[in-house]
Design a protein around this nucleic acid. Sequence first.
DNA 1: ACCTGAACACCGTTCAAGT
DNA 2: ACCTGAACACCGTTCAAGT
Lengths: 209, 209
Amino acid sequence: MATSGTPRRRSREDVAEMALHLLDEYGLPDLTMRNLATALGVQPSALYWHFPNKQALLAAVSTRILAPLAELPVEDLSVHEAVRVLGARLRDCLLTYRDASELVSSSLSLGLVGSPVRPQLLEVARRRGVPDALSEVAAEVLVHFTVGYVFHEQQRRTADSLGLLEAADALDPDEATAAPADEDSFAKALTMIADGLDVSVTRAAGPLG
Amino acid sequence: MATSGTPRRRSREDVAEMALHLLDEYGLPDLTMRNLATALGVQPSALYWHFPNKQALLAAVSTRILAPLAELPVEDLSVHEAVRVLGARLRDCLLTYRDASELVSSSLSLGLVGSPVRPQLLEVARRRGVPDALSEVAAEVLVHFTVGYVFHEQQRRTADSLGLLEAADALDPDEATAAPADEDSFAKALTMIADGLDVSVTRAAGPLG
DNA sequence: ACCTGAACACCGTTCAAGT
DNA sequence: ACCTGAACACCGTTCAAGT
């Protein structure tokens, strides 16, 4: 009995994993249902048994990309530290796979995937007596900024890997080569966001004690 | 001579204007080259005389959407006020047309359109003696957050106009109906960003004077 | 200068039918 | 339960040719 080994129940996971691999290898524009089916040695229509549509598939891929964030230990951090660590780690996750920020951005906006920093930031903030309303706002600023920043970063990366950097710089003489999207300015931005939250916390606590 | 009236040189502008109209009327997914051509009473291939590709067309539409921002008078504002006013006005521009934030987000990330707040924020900041490096960072946080926020706002808007709000809320029992994307939390976020910039400015000026 | 006509090489999705 | 085969209704883009 059951000699055919494990009844491989997780073929849905296999599809998502192959999709993530194709994303990283060939980029989002080439992550088509047809290419994915071919890579799996299957007909395109077979994918629709596992996922209702392409958006749902992409949401599953987004979840995989963001998974490492959930395991990040934040209990002992200050709120200021948590904002910076969560932002930096979210950026790491997005930079791990090609075009990941674009994919996550859309899954996030469609509400098909939860905020990758909200639960942990809320937990730390509560522990320090910060009102949820403030941490909610900070979480939104943090995730929108980070995803948008890395989106921009990855687009420029693939853009000048194709050698069409001049086109983008010819926009405005003053505006050219705005920000090189360096590591440093990202860290400064996170500090600015954390500082902003601190000010709000102080203002909220000030009148009371 | 020249009896045929004005030689209508601006048909390129007409194409962009019609595209903006279609965007607002039917949404980004239905803004196809074929639908646009039909609306103009022309063959799809005719559009490629005016624009090299669809991305360039969309960039022109983005520029139109963001145009009102350039006329905003900011000279007399404090840096703190400028951040909040520019953010609020950017949101207004994006909310004026359906799916505008998604379109602008991609044009922005592709570098086909300049930052809609950078020039004015830099000008105000210089006037107040704020180092460019700091206002650059603040401008990035401001634009990424605002575009991302409104993207999320508009997606939810069209999502529940289609009556599929429950699907998104069934994600996580704790995480459900995260932020109703209200006017108020957006204003609070802008204040937080402005506060963060203020702290950075104070820190930069402190050791010196 | 501006546009047509026709083609090329693709898409996501559905659905009866197979096993 | 899981997949095939075949179709439907589309896409963006190119390019010779017209006017």
